[in-house]
């Protein structure tokens, strides 16, 4: 099969590394060649961060370029707008409704755009938006919004739910497994509605 490309974007500290590890493990278990490219270091400190996940028969480049992503998962609305150019025509955009003001907005040097989700849809993107933070809090911790989004994405990919559950068990510490399973289920449910 041709290589498929998924991007996970958000704000440093939101938990995109765990999300990409879950995704990577699900795909490896299906015997795909997989590459997952992460961001460590300075940009993790509250900056805009991106993780690339690619899979197929043979993956060469670990990075995704503009117009190449089949799916973009965004942890925050402004980040969805920022990374939109990376979405392939007809690609899926899964967006958490959370908004976080970047420093130029906080200091008044820039404005946070209005109605980002509406504008993304009008640009032709196939947008699924969920209140990932609210659902994560319902599951027991705001930190689980990454796993809520994985639940949403799982409905967009042709992989069994069982495979996802296994990857969750591998990637999440036992202490937080129940909480994350609940977050994942809430994400799947939200996508179905």
């Amino acid at each position: 099969m041709n290589t498929k490309s998924i991007m996970i974007v958000g704000v440093g500290g939101q938990g995109s590394l765990l999300a990409s590890r879950i995704l990577g493990n699900v795909l490896l278990a299906q015997n795909y060649d997989v590459k997952v490219s992460e961001v460590h270091g300075m940009s993790q400190r509250g900056g805009s961060v991106v993780t690339y996940v690619k899979y197929g028969d043979e993956v060469c480049s670990p990075v995704i370029e503009k117009g190449e992503a089949d799916v973009i998962i965004s942890f925050e609305q402004l980040e969805a707008a920022r990374w939109l150019p990376y979405l392939k025509k007809g690609g899926h955009l899964v967006v958490s409704e959370q908004k976080m003001d970047p420093m130029p907005v906080i200091t008044g040097a820039a404005k946070y755009p209005e109605d980002i989700l509406g504008k993304l849809s009008s640009l032709g993107a196939d947008v699924t938006s969920v209140d990932a933070l609210g659902l994560a809090e319902e599951a027991g911790s705001p930190k689980a919004s990454n796993v809520v989004l994985m639940g949403v994405v799982s409905t967009k990919m042709e992989l069994s739910e069982d495979a996802w559950q296994k990857a969750l068990e591998e990637c999440v510490p036992p202490k937080f497994l129940e909480l994350n399973k609940k977050a994942f289920a809430l994400g799947r449910q939200a996508a179905a509605n």
Binding site: V11, G12, M42, S43, Q44, R45, G46, G47, S48, E65, K66, G67, E68, L78, E79, A81, R82, L84, P85, Y86, L87, K88, K89, P102, M103, P104, V105, A109, A110, K111, Y112, P113, I116, K119, L120, S122, L123, G124, A125
Partner: peptide, 16 residues
Amino acid sequence: KEFSEFSENVPVRPPV
């Protein structure tokens, strides 16, 4: 590659 841009200025988000 073809791609779409967001319709207005997206403020930068530097690390803090």
